[in-house]
Amino acid sequence: MKQLPFVLSVFALAAGSAFAETLKVNGSTTVNLPVAEAAEILRAEQKLDIQVDTQGGSSGGISMLGDGLVQVGMLSKHVSDDDRAKYPAVKFNEIHIGEDAVALIVSKDVWDGGVHALTRQQIKDIYESRITNWKDVGGKPQRIAFFNKEPGRGTWEVFAHWTYGSPKDAPQVSFPEVGGNEETRNKVAGTRGALSQLSSSWADGKKVFALGIKLDDGTVVEPTNENISTKKYPLSRPLFLLTNGEPQGAAKPLIDFVLSGRGQDLIKKHGYLRLKDLKEP
């Protein structure tokens, strides 16, 4: 059982020594957008060789860093205690680079049908299949086509945290699953009565629409930058780059760049909140 990761890491070491300067980055598709663009700039300006990949989302980033297959992970969630227990020899070092909000998105027919916000209880009812038709939450009669983000995605973990307190307390359900942000957006856009969880910056308001959250007192909070930075909008998550110990070698210029003014502008360009935005009340 334990041998396979070892064998793989031997291969990785062998490959790593042959191309010593190749920096390998893997993880969340959400973080990938600004980081891939940063890598592009560093490739052109500093001739750094950086490969950015998004296998398995945040969990893939953690496990591949844990196994030494990549030098930098991209995460849209914290490293859990379970992850740390799985890789006791690895010193996971989270570097905060920005903030993102998770929106519940619906297709155009649902939005036009009058559903613009849901309460937490309604979302729970949909997730546990007690509500299966939009007419029960104020929309037109149409079956709810719920696409669940696949396990391991940061988006899902934020959703489960807010809805159930912890991903572990979320009930086991079987819905059609979606992976990366592009897939989620396209499937929701192309399906009648669709609902899914998606990084709010991807909700364009043309094909897919971000629902507001109706709080207990009846007010509706939209996932706007202002509401996210003041934490009024409850479904937000930190974005991290992850290293094993202090960043070394080619990882250091990448991380320095992402934290610099230009790097932070890339974060903003892709619809996330910069560190600066978070400090301002």
């Binding site: 990761p5 893939g60 591949m64 396990p151």
Partner: peptide, 14 residues
Amino acid sequence: GSETNIAYGDPKHW
């Protein structure tokens, strides 16, 4: 799918 990544390190799941 993504479960192969998650299963890594959990003997039963793997």
